[in-house]
Design a protein around this nucleic acid. Structure first.
Lengths: 225, 225
DNA sequence: TGAATAGTGTCTTTCAGACAATATGCC
DNA sequence: GGCATATTGTCTGAAAGACACTATTCA
């Protein structure tokens, strides 16, 4: 019974696609790549590609992101698997979508494999997209809001040191609404998740702000904010 | 460029596996099947199997559940996709895990395809399992608790008409802790999610309880409980 | 009338939200 | 001194949690 024949059945192909978010220019941005190959040639799409036999899904997501956009060292979590029969014109393709957050410091996008361009687009104003990638991004925005409300994931979008105004602006951009400054600060400080540094903002033509840092270990995410 | 060759690359296989929960005998139960074929022959595992080319992932999950356990008409949502390279001894297999809830009324488990037995097991006391299915179930329990806390998903585990004590017991079993009866009822009734029926429990040797029903449409799930 | 479970209200504490004046650094 | 942003506290209303006695049915 151990001579299992892998070729016995037709099999779907498996890809990964990654929705990378950052905050930039007071806006929520997503990385898109311009496809250089059929199908949907010259259309914008999520970075991603086929999963290789000898790599895990997470590894595939990281590899494709590096290959197509030059992005690495990023927070990555699995989002959802999209498997409609007709979602890809080539053949049956199931895609495992990933969700990634990065802060935009010293980050240089660079197109390569199968891709003619890479750019940040506003998540609230995207071009027409290949495949079902619009649906994937909308799903990712929902996940981002949900997690921002219930976990400390938001710190992944900020530099190591940040002001309370930056933190509040982050929440305002993602939830697309304003918060009261005093209440926001009261709540954040009460949670004891962040601590003051000795630094203040430089080169601003107004009162400089204290810089804070996230107290928990890099990578740690706590529930309930 | 349109003559895309599907056979050009080796491809992983894709399966679905389903974690079906119910509440029975004051305990949280999961359906397991006894495997009749290699690998892990005679071990308990989650119901599941290979995704066919012409069916979506959701359809595959429903079909496998019906074939292997005789369960149908169930609440089903995608849980997570497990894709470690070595998780299956046959070949590279990526599995899309599903999470399902059912109330145990008039439900008859019946083994068939590739399976020699089907049974309910306590989620808190399971036998050794095939593949990485233990990990999948643990992940499903986390999801269940999370969703029970933040949505009305719990009603899927109850019959159409239920007593407030049944509802409270459900929460106590899944969270594995006791709640105050008055506070629990106050909160539930304040939310206006359920309404009284004209019925009361029969054949109990003590004061009978009012039966309630969930007010929302079947299938609807509301956030924030 | 005893056993078993159903049903009900008040008080206290905690958290969320509304709301505006002063402080500081740069030009 | 004027501009721009940073920083700070009180009050009110809503919700969560602690807590115990009466009601009803059946055997």
């Amino acid at each position: 019974m151990e001579n299992y024949d892998v070729t016995k059945f037709d099999r779907p192909s498996v890809t990964v696609d990654v929705v990378v978010f950052t905050i930039k220019d007071i806006d929520l941005k997503v990385i898109l790549v311009k496809r250089a190959v059929w199908p949907y040639e010259n259309m914008w799409a999520l970075p991603g590609g086929f999963v290789k036999m000898e790599e895990s899904l997470d590894q595939a997501a990281k590899r494709e992101l590096l290959e197509e956009t030059n992005v690495k060292d990023i927070y990555l979590e699995q989002l959802y698997t999209f498997g409609d029969v007709k979602r890809d014109p080539r053949t049956r393709v199931i895609t495992v979508a990933y969700f990634a957050l990065i802060n935009q410091d010293n980050l240089e996008l660079k197109a390569s494999t199968d891709v003619s361009d890479v750019k940040w687009f506003s998540a609230y104003n995207m071009p027409q997209l290949a495949f079902d990638h619009k649906e994937i991004i909308n799903y990712a925005i929902k996940r981002l809001r949900w997690k921002l409300g219930y976990t400390t994931i938001g710190f992944k979008l900020l530099p190591n040191e940040f002001t309370l105004t930056q933190l509040q602006t982050l929440y305002e951009i993602i939830f697309n609404k304003k918060f009261d400054k005093r209440n926001f600060r009261k709540k954040i400080l009460f949670l004891e998740l962040i601590e003051e540094t000795d630094e203040i903002t430089k080169n601003v033509s107004h009162r400089p702000a204290k810089l804070y840092r996230f107290k928990k270990k890099i990578g740690e995410i706590i529930e309930i904010i």
